[in-house]
Every structure is written in C-alpha cells, then in structure tokens.
C-alpha cells in the first residue's frame, strides 16, 4: 500500500514537472490520472502475480559511479573517434568473455548497459556467469579496465536478499 502511494506521488510529481501548469482544475485532473494509473497497475499485478522489482542501489555510491562512467565515456569516445578519422582504420575486433560478480539482476543490467554505453565495447550475449563482449580495438588492457568497472558496479550494489 505504501508503495502504491509513493508511486502515485512520484507519477504526479513527474506529471507536474512535465506540464508546469498550476490551475486547480488541471492539477486535480493530473492527480486523478496518476491515481487511476496506479489503480490499473495494481489490478494488473493481482491478475499476473508478478514479483515486483526491488531496487538495491546505494544512492551516493551510484552518484559517484555516474561521474566515473562519464569520464570513461569521454576516454573511449576519443579512442573510437581516432579510429574513425584515421585513413586506414586499424580495427582489431575480438569477442571475449567478461566475468561479472554482481548478485542482483539490476546490478548485472547496470554493468551490461555501461559496457554497451562506452563506445568500443558492446555486450552481445548474457550467459550464467559471464558476458560475451565484442571489442572494437582489442588489447590486453581491456580485461583490466572491465574488471575495474565490474568492481565499481559491485560497490554500488546494496544488500541483496535473494
């Protein structure tokens, strides 16, 4: 119940920030629509007995992680730009496996998304205990860099109760 109230408040805040109108009638309609949306979602949950998604992330660690990822994106963008603009594109592409240590699904999703977001590496397949990653300019340093990223993602992960 508490979760539903928080969801309704979140949806209403989102609605207000998107519209930015503060007439009474519009605000009432917005609040009504967000409550209606939450009611529909609750009905759908009862129909499908879906286990709800639980988020276990440490906010401060995650904020630090975002800044680190932005720096990584800048570095790897520079690498890919150099390859695109050089006359003979020296592509050394390779598929390799990257093990991950995250416990929760969300942590694994964050790690895989970060690998794909940095240009030069793309997660191709998710196996039981490793990702299959395709690299554009492969070198042995990539394994160390991805292990570092893995360590940082695992640090943002909170206590997981499976």
């Amino acid at each position: 119940m508490l979760r539903s109230i928080f969801t309704a408040i979140f949806l209403f805040a989102l609605w207000y920030l998107m519209s930015g109108i503060d007439k009474t009638l519009t605000l009432v309609l917005g609040a009504g629509s967000s409550v209606f949306a939450v009611w529909i979602v609750r009905r759908m949950d009862e129909a499908s007995n879906f286990k709800c998604l639980s988020v276990h992330l440490r906010p401060i660690e995650f904020g630090k992680y975002i800044f680190w990822v932005l720096a990584e994106i800048a570095k790897s963008n520079w690498t890919v730009i150099k390859i695109v603009l050089s006359p003979n594109m020296d592509i050394k592409q390779k598929m390799y496996e990257v093990p991950f240590t995250q416990k929760s699904d969300l942590g694994q999703a964050v790690f895989a998304n970060t690998i794909t977001l940095t240009p030069g590496t793309i997660t191709v397949e998710v196996e039981a205990d490793h990702f299959l990653v395709h690299g554009l300019s492969y070198s042995f340093d990539d394994h160390a860099a991805l292990a570092e990223m893995d360590r940082r993602v695992s640090k943002t992960e909170g206590i997981v109760d499976l």
Partner: peptide, 12 residues
C-alpha cells in the same frame, strides 16, 4: 564495427 560507430552518437 558499425555498432561501435553508432554508439558514439548514442553516448557522446
């Protein structure tokens, strides 16, 4: 390799 070029647009 084209995948990686498209990801430059997507991130940077």
């Amino acid at each position: 390799s084209r995948l990686h070029a498209a990801s430059v647009t997507d991130s940077g």
